[in-house]
Design a protein around this nucleic acid. Sequence first.
DNA 1: AATAAAAACGAACGATCGTTCTTTTTCATG
DNA 2: CATGAAAAAGAACGATCGTTCGTTTTTATT
Lengths: 202, 202
Amino acid sequence: MAKLSPETLRERSDHILDAAGRCFARAGFHRTTMQDICREAEVSPGALYIYFNSKESLIAGICERERAEFASRFAEMPVGADFMGALAALGRQFLEDPLHRRLLCVEVGIEATRNPKVGEIQKSVEGFIRGSFHDLFTKLKTEGRIAPVFDIDTVVEAFMTIADGMLWRRAVDENFKADVVLPPLLEAVAALLRPVAHEAKS
Amino acid sequence: MAKLSPETLRERSDHILDAAGRCFARAGFHRTTMQDICREAEVSPGALYIYFNSKESLIAGICERERAEFASRFAEMPVGADFMGALAALGRQFLEDPLHRRLLCVEVGIEATRNPKVGEIQKSVEGFIRGSFHDLFTKLKTEGRIAPVFDIDTVVEAFMTIADGMLWRRAVDENFKADVVLPPLLEAVAALLRPVAHEAKS
DNA sequence: AATAAAAACGAACGATCGTTCTTTTTCATG
DNA sequence: CATGAAAAAGAACGATCGTTCGTTTTTATT
């Protein structure tokens, strides 16, 4: 009887997941070998396979963490007086992510189209995000703070398309300048949401 | 002396490239084997390697064709009276592409970040597209048909981000409805370009 | 038709990959 | 401290991949 404590177990599995994430982001899922991950995590194959029983389950694990990450970020989003400002801040936050996380999103998205297991998880992540924005936009609409011409479902879909465009472009184009495109894209989003002007404050 | 005619040579290399494209789109670059491509093209490995000396050069070949394809589509774009309509038509055209081509774009984009050779070609494709829209928008601006608040470079960048968002989402989300998001996204693009209203015709 | 070179074939090679398995080390417990 | 099971190690396995190469087939030319 010499079982490691659950905390230690979790800690080590997280450590391996981190290493795998760095490797996947660096070289892509199919180009990184299990040996690469072992080297990066400084563990042996035997040890790694105690925590994850296949290469595939490493991607799945990364997916799950990504969902948790977004959930916490979105929960912290202040939807107070200036929601466009909050949206801008959220966008900035994502665009300031280390390159490694962004490449990972793309990598996972691709893998999801071909790997049913990853696809399932990814779909639930997408659903969660879509739901979060859907709730936010409907709330803003019922409160009369936005007056979109299209229905909420459509607005959410278009919004997510624009957001994904940033994600993709930032991951793929080395010359991408986040601070250049963010303002015009926020303008574009504003055209979708059509925030209703309140009585001027200044 | 039994050399095949250049036309035949080109024909067969195109045939192989088509098959490779289908395979890459179906399973991704790293998951398709040379045997897969041989089977799809109905040629032997020995024959394939006469036309392409590596798996990598197949992607490169596909890239080059993609550039030519876009060039011809853009050249055919009627930039007459109703350029927003023309833009919409171009968008619809791309979104109506067979799934296979769209997945291919994503596949190539990813590969470009890791494969210097592919990266070089992809960069030139991107440059060509960016240049095309840059020219179009500056022309529209000097003619006084649009009045963007941001400078042309920025507008082009934001526009391409939105376009890429559609490409990505359509490739990755099986429930993506092109006809649903296209109208709001065109609205968003309009907010960037700010077409100046001419005297009403109807 | 004969010919010679190009083109195509396809079995096979060497390298590499994901995974396993035997051995050794570690560590909570008696 | 002794113990035994869990955890880690890492050499090794079978499978598979991109590519090659010796042979056969095709084809433009004489």
